[in-house]
């Protein structure tokens, strides 16, 4: 049982590397220290383990859209705090602070643009704005984007990155699920393609509405995708969750994700889907 004994030599504590702020980033998954410029070039995917870092809507726009083609609309729309909500602090204060911190007005960016020359309407959620939570503004901006896709007869894309509905707007947040789903239902009647892209995380009311209503569901690898959060489930059932539970691969295995696409291929694969839907089978 020699191997069982503790070796005399104590484990050396890993030397703390002084990382110049902003120059190096440590991979959340494998711990690899990555040069930030390198990570940027790799679209924020760890070169060692393929871990997909969470990125903002601005980076997704630069990844997906042909250069300079994306035009945002309804950019200035902001939450109105209809409930005058307050927990330990006021929702309106928290909101203001978030706007200041993120430089964004809400948790979704909507706009038009071109993906490999395909004109599309797209909504991109952003987790850094109050956890990508869906309140009235998110619901309204997405609804208007869907309306525009219908009007322009252009494919609709929604990229989700969201913890779910925003509690601070109570029932109004919940109703955004019904609103956006209703708009998508009408879009579907007009046979306009809708592609849902699910990134880490997509949970709660976001998953239980537009994220799960696509003609095609694309997920990034390893993204948390589900209805109830893992902590809530664990508390409810009082047992540990199986490994990989609610990750993209698990959700695909259970039949709710069509394709898992590496971020490096995301634009190309979406463009191919758009090619497919746009193709007319003409009889000679």
């Amino acid at each position: 049982m020699d191997w069982f004994k503790r070796k005399k030599e104590a484990l050396k504590p890993v030397e703390k590397k002084e990382l110049p702020d902003g120059l190096w980033i440590k991979c959340d998954n494998c711990g690899e220290i990555i040069y930030k410029k390198e990570l940027e070039k790799k679209l924020y995917v760890c070169p060692k383990c393929d871990f997909h870092f969470r990125i903002g809507s601005d980076i997704y726009i630069s990844i997906l859209f042909d250069k300079g083609t994306f035009t945002e609309f309804n950019q200035s729309m902001k939450a109105a705090d209809p409930l005058n909500f307050k927990d330990s602090r006021k929702y309106s204060d928290k909101y203001k602070a978030t706007v200041k911190k993120t430089g964004m007005n809400e948790a979704v960016v909507t706009g038009t643009g071109q993906i490999e020359k395909h004109k599309v309407v797209m909504a991109l959620m952003d987790f850094k704005f109050l956890g990508g939570s869906m309140g009235s503004v998110v619901g309204e901006k997405i609804s208007r984007a869907i309306d525009l896709a219908l009007e322009n007869k252009q494919p609709m894309l929604i990229l989700s990155s969201s913890g779910g509905a925003r509690m601070h707007e109570g029932i109004l947040s919940l109703m955004q699920m019904a609103k956006t789903s209703a708009k998508l239902a009408r879009l579907a009647e007009h046979k306009i393609p809708y592609i849902s892209i699910l990134t880490n995380p997509t949970t709660g009311g976001t998953t239980a509405s537009y994220a799960m209503l696509g003609d095609v569901h694309i997920a990034e690898p390893g993204a948390l995708i589900g209805f109830a959060g893992p902590r809530v489930i664990k508390q409810t059932i009082g047992q540990d969750l199986p490994p990989g539970f609610q990750r993209s691969e698990f959700v695909q295995d259970h039949g709710f994700i069509d394709i898992i696409v590496h971020r490096h291929e995301l634009k190309q694969r979406i463009a191919s889907l758009l090619d497919f839907f746009a193709h007319q089978n003409n009889v000679a």
Binding site: M177, A188, L213, F227
Partner: peptide, 14 residues
């Protein structure tokens, strides 16, 4: 979750 709680709800809204 395995059987798609989110999808089932979303589908009904739709």
């Amino acid at each position: 979750e395995e059987r798609g709680q989110a999808e089932a709800i979303a589908r009904n809204l739709f």
